[in-house]
Nucleic acid binder design. Sequence first.
DNA 1: GGATATACTATACGACGCGAGGTATTATGT
DNA 2: ACATAATACCTCGCGTCGTATAGTATATCC
Lengths: 102, 102
Amino acid sequence: MDAQVKRGLLDVCVLAAIKFDDSYGYKIIKDLEPYMKISESTLYPILRRLEEQGQLTVRSEEYNGRLRKYYGITATGRDKIAQFASEWKEIMSVYDYVTREE
Amino acid sequence: MDAQVKRGLLDVCVLAAIKFDDSYGYKIIKDLEPYMKISESTLYPILRRLEEQGQLTVRSEEYNGRLRKYYGITATGRDKIAQFASEWKEIMSVYDYVTREE
DNA sequence: GGATATACTATACGACGCGAGGTATTATGT
DNA sequence: ACATAATACCTCGCGTCGTATAGTATATCC
């Protein structure tokens, strides 16, 4: 996928990955793989930013002797998803414009 | 529209604005307005970049005593549009993933 | 004659993706 | 037993790019 387009979808994809169940970095990367390849150095800064913005919450939990950070979506995060969905009409109209045949 | 999403659509919108007829900066901004508001300070650097990348060509022409730069799409530019169109399925699958109901 | 539209340019800032590199434990294969 | 891969997190630095701000200059409208 085009790098710039991808950029526009990254945040909302991460939110979508935790919208039903809390999840953690490594799992998010694997879950998103079919839709969008995202590297660790891309994801972790995004998670931190989304937390700062109040779109998700973090809790640390030990799993099998290893530390895991579980991320859960907040109401603000859900709003972002809803906002993205409501913007879709605009995005579609751009698509139609770009692919139009005179 | 979300700033990041917009970012992903900017290049291809500009190409789309000149895909049938050559155009110039000011007109491109007005033509794109219904789909996407783009400022001068955003557009002109994009035009220069797209030229460097061989996606469009420029010629200067005098119009009414004022200099105008007309931009025309190249085969490479058309390829970019085609590429965007062919990526659309992936983008749609992201949309479906983000808006899915369990 | 003053405001608005037209038309292009340069500078500087900040946001952000991501490659490269680091640490550490557990599971798997031979 | 030992190497390799998988799991799980983190940081630093680079380059790209949108955009606010400001500047230049002519034409048109009231």
